[in-house]
């Protein structure tokens, strides 16, 4: 009895405030835009369920799939998220590897130093890059003073700036799971490989990397899934050519005030991400059982 009471409090909260809203989003994605409060029709009417249901249709979905703007925004978001995930992995791996090999007494401090920027505001960290990347920004100033370039580089408001922003903002999400799995590797395994005549690069690919795979997988999910729906980074650092679906959804909702179409955009985005989300959850459960 008490057990069920304990379970039901957090459970009900999540069902009401996280699960149920998705059904509402789905329902509204089947509605039509209206100049009313709330700005869609039909609104739910318990006395006339049949009439309510008969007004729902898949028009908004047909609209999204017929307009190349939306389709391109989905593909471009997935592409940008995938490339950034790979870049983040490439940047994070040597850092996490170095941390795992650092003297034991330094390691808690190093972990702390990775977490600290994660605690400071995401928005502020993205904002910091505007001052660096813009045409008269600090990076161009620095490179021109060094004489590396004579003309300022155009990085701000391009997709390159979005890559930099995502790699920077999501780096701790990649370093921490990588470090956690690299740190667990028993160094005697590498010594054994070396004793058996394996050169270091070969030991890395055949021993270290496979053993770090759980961390690689967890980190990639933690970066790829939210980056696909990212809004702040493409909005502040990207330009008009950077198409990402999170930005499209935001514009549809706040500028066009079209709640039904933004709901349909959200439902399709969720369908795109549902496979990686389920895989992520499985991976977490598996790691927990292993621990």
């Amino acid at each position: 009895m008490r057990r069920w009471l304990l379970i039901s409090v957090p459970y009900l909260w999540l069902v009401v405030f996280f699960l149920v809203p998705f059904f509402i989003v789905f329902k509204i994605s089947l509605s039509d835009i209206a100049t009313a409060i709330p700005p869609y029709t039909p609104t739910f009417d318990i006395t006339d369920i049949r009439g309510f249901l008969s007004q729902l249709d898949f028009e908004n979905y047909a609209f999204i799939f017929s307009d190349s703007l939306y389709v391109n925004a989905y593909f471009s978001a997935i592409k940008i998220a995938a490339i950034s995930t790979l870049l983040t992995l490439l940047v994070a791996y040597p850092i996490a590897y170095g941390m795992a090999r650092a003297p034991k007494e330094w390691q808690p401090t190093l972990v702390m130093l990775v977490i600290l920027p994660f605690w400071t505001s995401f928005l502020i960290r993205v904002y910091a890059w505007i001052g660096i990347l813009k045409k008269e920004g600090l990076l161009n100033l620095f490179l021109m003073n060094l004489g590396v370039i004579s003309e300022p580089l155009t990085i701000m408001n391009t997709t390159t700036a979005v890559y930099i922003g995502i790699v920077y903002s999501y780096l701790p999400f990649m370093i921490l799971p990588l470090y956690a799995s690299l740190e667990k590797i028993n160094p005697s395994l590498l010594e054994a490989a070396a004793d058996l005549g394996s050169p270091p690069w070969k030991s890395f690919w055949q021993v270290t990397f496979p053993l770090s795979l759980p961390g690689v997988i967890a980190g990639c999910f933690l970066v790829f899934i939210p980056a696909t729906g990212e809004f702040v980074i493409p909005d502040l650092l990207g330009g008009s050519e950077t198409l990402m679906i999170g930005k499209t959804l935001w514009g549809e909702f706040f500028s066009n005030r079209d709640w039904p179409v933004s709901s349909a955009v959200a439902v399709v985005l969720l369908l795109v991400l549902v496979v990686p989300i389920v895989l992520f959850q499985r991976n977490q459960e598996k790691q927990r059982e292993a621990a």
Binding site: Y11, P21, V25, P226, F231, G246, Q281
Partner: peptide, 19 residues
């Protein structure tokens, strides 16, 4: 339940916000 705990960790904010 565990799905409801882990999904919000990675759910894009625009979806959570809208819903």
């Amino acid at each position: 339940f565990s799905g409801l705990i882990f999904a919000p960790l990675v759910m894009p904010e625009v979806i959570t916000g809208l819903s």
